[in-house]
Amino acid sequence: MTEPGALDQGVTRDEWTATVVGHHRLRHDVAVIRLIGEFVPFRAGQSVEIRTAVQSEVRRRLSPALPPSLDGKLEFHVRTVPGGWLSGTLVADTKIGDEWLISAPAGTFHVDPAGDEVVMIAGGTGLAPLRAQILELARAPQPPRTYLFVGGRSPRDLYAADMLVLLAAELPWLTVVPVVERVSDPNWPDEWYEQIRAQVDVGFPADDLLEGTLADVVGAHGAFDHHQVLVCGSPAMTRATVERLVETGTPRGIIQYEGI
């Protein structure tokens, strides 16, 4: 556990402190980390910069998966980045009681709750800022119809399947479309996935999975020319998806996108 004040040195008025209260390893390379601390004045869909007591000199941008909370609740979805200085440590070594410093909210993702229908396209942990915006929309009196395309290489890469199935059941205006590049999982075991599967029996039925890349699947739907369109994922996935959207008639000017 981090000693109180371990990160006090160098704190400025533009940094806020939060303490880890939950660390849930979902896959060999993915963890959900929950914190409680000071109110952080970001907007749903933005990213923030974080540093920890373990590697206080290293900073990384992460997108909260919850909208701003006056009681200081934060949630981050973290995937190990090959060669990354901090992501692997966050996924594998985060402990309850660790202290984080959070700063520099940035980003322009936004959804108009009184605007057109919404199309969200999330690759991997690019889901986080889009999920925050879905929860923010849920506070609106009449949220617009929202379609969330969420993709992975194989079914077990859809690390938030249980949460998304339950969320779609709760929100009648939300439709979740799961997309996988192949319908069978790799033949090597992921112990964290196996543990979760033994505990949770909620997920996407196999018949609901659409096979292909996110770019291919959303492109097959034609133009989203009267929609609010948001894309978030790896830089390669984001570039490919935006280009396919434009090729199939979606105006480039209405597409909001961000690589993670």
Rank of each mutant, 00 (worst) to 15 (best):
L86W: 04
S87D: 02
S87F: 10
S87H: 05
G88T: 11
G88P: 07
G88E: 08
G88M: 05
T89G: 05
T89R: 10
T89F: 04
L90F: 01
A92N: 03
D93R: 05
T94S: 06
T94E: 01
T94G: 00
K95C: 01
K95V: 00
I96Y: 01
G97K: 03
G97F: 01
G97S: 04
D98V: 01
E99W: 08
E99N: 07
W100R: 03
L101Q: 10
L101E: 02
I102N: 06
S103Y: 13
A104P: 00
A104H: 12
P105E: 14
P105M: 14
A106D: 08
G107M: 04
G107E: 07
T108H: 12
T108V: 08
F109R: 07
H110V: 11
V111S: 04
V111P: 00
V111K: 06
D112M: 13
P113W: 00
A114T: 15
G115Q: 13
D116G: 10
D116L: 09
D116V: 01
D116Q: 13
V118G: 02
V118Y: 05
V119R: 02
V119I: 12
V119T: 11
M120T: 13
M120K: 04
I121Y: 03
A122P: 07
A122I: 06
A122H: 01
A122F: 06
A122E: 00
A122V: 04
G123N: 07
G123L: 10
G123F: 09
G124H: 15
T125G: 02
T125L: 00
G126K: 02
G126L: 05
L127Y: 12
L127T: 02
L127S: 09
A128M: 08
A128T: 12
A128P: 00
P129Q: 08
L130K: 13
L130G: 06
R131E: 14
R131L: 12
R131M: 10
A132M: 12
A132K: 02
A132L: 08
A132I: 01
Q133F: 14
I134K: 09
L135R: 14
L135S: 07
E136M: 15
E136I: 00
L137Y: 02
L137T: 05
R139M: 05
R139H: 09
R139I: 00
R139Q: 15
A140V: 14
A140W: 01
P141L: 01
P141N: 03
Q142C: 05
Q142D: 13
P143Y: 11
P143Q: 06
R145N: 00
T146Q: 04
T146I: 10
T146F: 03
Y147Q: 11
Y147I: 06
L148T: 14
L148G: 08
F149G: 09
F149I: 06
V150F: 08
V150P: 01
R153T: 15
P155K: 10
R156E: 10
R156K: 12
R156G: 00
D157Q: 15
D157T: 07
L158S: 10
L158P: 12
Y159V: 10
Y159R: 08
Y159Q: 06
A160E: 10
A160D: 13
A160T: 09
A160P: 11
A161T: 05
D162P: 09
M163E: 14
L164W: 09
L164D: 11
V165N: 14
L166G: 13
L166M: 12
L167N: 10
A168N: 05
A169T: 09
E170I: 05
E170L: 01
P172Q: 07
P172F: 04
P172D: 13
